[in-house]
Design a protein around this nucleic acid. Structure first.
Lengths: 252, 252
DNA sequence: TCATTCTCTTGATCCTTATCAAGCTGCGAT
DNA sequence: ATCGCAGCTTGATAAGGATCAAGAGAATGA
């Protein structure tokens, strides 16, 4: 049972090369639970009792204040979320809810901290992971401050294509309302902007994205390594842009 | 000489309780340099060869893209900046320049990583520090996405007062243009907004901030622990809001 | 002390984005 | 199939910020 989980969990860079004993201690105390869609897993402000590890499904990480709400990340297997709150034993800064039926592994924060303290190799992995989360969030903030909404959208769309291997077409991996929220705009604004991108080399039809004039679209999107990767850190990290995708989303 | 630095550096939580041998190794390989104002210390995109540690002065951390530029943090002694890039051996995501004459300690990233790998206690400190940086950046992003410019300004002003011990008045610690950039708005917009805050209980006269009606102003600012602290992490971390202040800035 | 320069302010205007209000569309449930 | 509900789109309007332009104030250096 633990072994089955361990196999999945080994896919995480966080556990790469970590001693079996450490891994076993962490998994032994962990809860493996399945949740239906649209269940709140984490409430911001609550004490961070568990590190969350998503094994199956899809989870939205979001933050709210005064009525408003904003998506901060969409997390997919296999990765962790809200690592930072766990290691600091501080209140969660973000909430999380399932978007689909999801299987989540809950590792008690106290055990996590103990593992960091006792296993140097694991500690190093956590350092690298956290640094990745941080850099990912820096990129997010930079995007918000340095690009207009239209530029953010174009960059996102092109980035997705690149991640899939520079495919000319693919399916949007999340609902547009979530995309809009993630990128800091209203759904109406996103809708209009998407439509307008047709004249810049990218056509959107429902969930389908088709890059019709790559050169033109690349000029508009103007991807930069400092804002858009290609570091892997962003995808694996607890806070990523909405998402690493499966090949299923690729279009012929 | 090393001992003199060590004393300053010990003030950093990053080195709290760390073995002398580790500290000595780090400091031995480090460069202690003074820079005039407005010197670029770090260029985004460059390899992160050094962890920077500010001992005296003031440093602006900023990011640019396509003509635009945005302040990401203002760092004051004693703290580090761009820790994440150093530990990941990745390109800097942000640039940095001195705002005043500053004394900076440059620790080779390779030595930093070696210290993390060899000293478990130090590794744990780095984990906590990075988690703090991350949470600080999350707060920054949340602020940008969840509050209007007016709300961001009010929250910032009130937060500063609180940090100084709920003083009714104080001096702005950085130029307004930097504040504006940090909060993601134009100087003109900041200027107008500041003026308009007079009717909400906060008067600004030049660099001077005076809270005239605390109750009213608090209602407007609507501080929340999830956006504004009071965690210490934000101030010490590599990315903080423009800044922890000295008592000098307090007003009678 | 004066001159230069940069920051900050203020005004007028334009552009972007949010908001409000309908419809439309697609999908799951009955 | 069809009903009902969300998500998405579209249009009209309003508000919030940006931009452009000019001038006032403050700090720096000769």
């Amino acid at each position: 049972m633990i072994d089955a989980i361990a196999e999945d969990v080994r896919k995480l860079r966080l556990f790469d090369g970590v001693a079996d004993t450490t891994l076993r201690k962490l998994l032994h105390a962990a809860y493996d639970q399945s949740f239906p869609p649209f269940v709140k897993l984490v409430e911001e402000g609550a004490p961070a009792d568990f590190l969350h590890l998503i094994l199956e499904g899809m989870v939205e990480v979001y933050a709210g204040a005064r009525q408003r709400e904003s998506t901060m990340a969409v997390v997919r297997p296999v990765s962790t979320f809200i690592l930072a709150a766990s290691v600091r034993d501080a209140p969660y800064l973000m909430s999380a809810r399932t978007l689909q039926r999801s299987r989540i592994l809950l590792i008690p924060s106290a055990d996590l901290r103990a593992a960091i303290a006792s296993d140097n190799h694991f500690a190093m992995n956590v350092v690298v992971e956290l640094a990745g989360c941080y850099r990912s969030m820096v990129r997010h903030a930079k995007n918000l401050k340095l690009r207009s909404t239209r530029e953010r959208i174009a960059a996102y769309l092109l980035r997705q294509s690149r991640i899939l291997g520079n495919v000319p077409g693919y399916i949007l991996p999340v609902e547009k309302r979530i995309l809009a929220s993630y990128m800091g705009m209203t759904p109406e604004n996103l809708s209009r902007a998407l439509k307008s991108l047709a004249e810049d080399g990218c056509k959107i039809d429902g969930q389908r994205v088709i890059i019709t004039d790559r050169a033109k679209f690349e000029a508009l999107a103007d991807l930069s390594p400092l804002l858009d990767g290609p570091d892997v850190e962003a995808s694996q990290a607890g806070v990523s842009l909405p998402l690493p995708l499966s090949d299923l989303q690729r279009l012929a």
